[in-house]
Each structure stands twice: as structure tokens, then as C-alpha cells.
Simulated scan of single mutants.
Amino acid sequence: MTMARPDHDRDAAGNDRSAALSHALDQVQLKGAIFLYSEYTEAWAYESMAAHDVAAVLAPDAAQIVLFHVVASGSCWIEAGSDKVWAHEGDVVVLPYNDQHRMGGHETAELVPITQLVDPPPWSSMPHIVHGLGGARSELICGYLACDDRLFDRRLGVFPPVFVVTPPEGPVRMWVKASSDLVLQQTSQVTDDRIASPTEIPQLLLREVLKLHLANAPATDTGWLAALHDPVVAPALAAIHGDPANKWTLADLARESTVSSTVLDERFRAVLGLAPIRYLTGWRMHVAEDLLRTTLLSVTAVAHRVGYESEEAFSRAFKRDHGTAPSVWRVAAP
């Protein structure tokens, strides 16, 4: 029997545990690319740039940056804050909040700032780091995705600062490797000072990795991930995410969870830190953002899609949440 490594997600081949997960991931809008290929030999270690410097280089207009590293060969550790994990060939490391981090191999080595290993941008070709003392070799393919989705709001506690996903043996693992190789091959120079990398494949890759992580990671005591595993909260979340336009009341949601309104309200507050109806409003605003950004639907149509009978009522709620009217927000949205 194969034993799961303690710092990795368990049973990564399992199915999604709640409808809320699928609906949430379907809504996530991601933009990004592979941007770095690295070859490290023992002994080696580096420290990344600060989060704001990474964002300024990769996506200065993005609200949030998600970093990921595909371990093409070898193995390494990665540390963000007090969290430290190991990753091995075929694994994918994710830093969902773009935290400054450190990475290294099996042998002890002095931390080197990554700015000493790669030329400053703009880059005329994909940066290629070769670093270390000539021992055992590890290869990493690094990418980023820009996103303003609430799923990546650190306050929701959906993800740890750094985590490793081990795709199961078979098609998924082979797909991750083939996708990384294909992006490397298709990244090319566009102008004297700019390179272009396919964006669709990194998006699909990260979505798959997030599904594997969220569906099978151990439950936590509080936060969004805990809610997905909570027998009281999860059915109500699935109902909200599945039909945000429905005229949900607390009693309706309690029936979905087969508990009393009081029990559902108390459990929601304990796990997510807010009342069910407040969560419903927040999710409606999130869906509205997606519709305003990605469709040509009128504000009235968007209002109806997210459960408001009138444009006026929707606009008031949207302005309370965003500080501006939906029509104004739409024009300024990235």
C-alpha cells in the first residue's frame, strides 16, 4: 500500500466533496503564464523577492498573484513564513498569496537572493536559472496567475500559505508534465524586449491542482475549507453557490442542511465568521462581478441573475460592497 507523505494532500484522486467547490472554481478568472525555468544542483537555496516586487514585475495591475512551481525533476523544500513543505518530481507547489518564500535542496546552503540569479526585466527570452554546486539536480518550472477572486482572499482561510499537490499516477500526472513541457516549448520571443507564453494551459493546470487540493486536503477548524467539509454548512453553501438568484431565507438554507435556523446560523458564524445571509450577499456580489466583467448583460439582467428584483436594489447593494455603482465598476474592471 502506498503511504501518503505527511506534507502533501491525501487521496489526491478523490472526487469533489461538495458542489460549492465546483461552483467556486468555475467562477475563478485567472490570467498568467509560465515565466521561469530553473536548474539547481546541490547544494543550493534561494530567497524570493518580496510579494510587492514580484507583483510589480509580473502583473502590476493585478489585485492578487498566485505563484506555482512544477517540479520537473529532483526534489526541494519550500518555506513561506513558518510553513515548510517538501516537493518531489511531478508535484506542484502553490503559493496562493504570493508570499515571499525560500527554497532549497537536501544539503545545507546559504540563501541567495533570487535577484542575484536572474537578470532584471524586461526579458527578451524566458529567464533560465542555473545555480548550485554541481551535485544532484532539480528542475523547476515556475508560473504565475493574476486573480482578483475572493477565493484567494487570505482572510477567508481557504488555503495555507504554501502547499504541495501530488497528482495521482495516471492521466492527471501525465497531463501536468505534458502541459508544462508544452508551455516551455511554445514560449517565444515576440519583440526585442518581450516574450510571450501560452496562458490557457497554466490556467487549466492551476484549476486542476486547486480541485485536487480543495477536494482532499484535511479539514481545518475554521475558514472556507472547513466549511466545505462541515456537514451543516456545506449543504447550505452548495445551495447558495448553485442558485444565487433564488430568494433564499435562513429557514430555506436550514432545510437544505436539515437543521434548525438557529443551528445553521450558529455553525456558519463559528466556521466562516459571518451569518448565512451575509455570506449569500457576498457570493451574489462575487457572481455579479464575474457577469459584469465577462458578459454584455445589462445591469438589470445581472441583478436578476443574482437574486435582485430591481436594478435599483442591486445597485444599492453593489455600491455598499464595492463603493461604486455596478456600471462604473464595469468600465474600470480589469
Rank of each mutant, 00 (worst) to 15 (best):
W329D: 07
T295R: 12
V70A: 12
L296N: 08
D181A: 14
G135M: 07
D16E: 15
D7M: 10
T2N: 07
G32C: 13
D53T: 12
V94Y: 11
W283T: 04
H8P: 00
V54W: 00
W86Y: 15
M285T: 01
S327C: 02
V158I: 11
L58F: 02
G74L: 05
A317H: 08
A219D: 08
H128F: 14
V66N: 02
V112W: 00
T281Y: 00
E89W: 03
L21I: 15
P231Q: 06
A251K: 14
L145G: 02
A317E: 13
V271N: 06
L214N: 01
D230T: 02
A313W: 11
L145E: 01
V165D: 09
A50Y: 03
D149K: 05
L280D: 00
N246Q: 08
D26I: 06
D192N: 11
D265M: 10
L212W: 03
E47L: 02
V233Y: 12
L36P: 00
P168H: 03
L151I: 13
E169D: 14
F152S: 06
A87K: 06
L296F: 10
A13V: 04
G143K: 09
V263W: 08
Q29P: 04
L292Y: 04
D243G: 11
F163I: 02
Q203F: 00
S310H: 14
D181R: 06
T220R: 04
D265N: 14
S124V: 00
E139V: 11
T166Q: 11
R207W: 10
Y46A: 04
G323E: 02
N216F: 01
P122S: 05
A136Y: 13
Q203R: 13
L30G: 07
R5K: 10
W44N: 08
T222D: 05
V165T: 10
H106I: 01
V71P: 01
V209S: 07
L297S: 07
D91A: 08
L253T: 01
P334Y: 06
A217I: 05
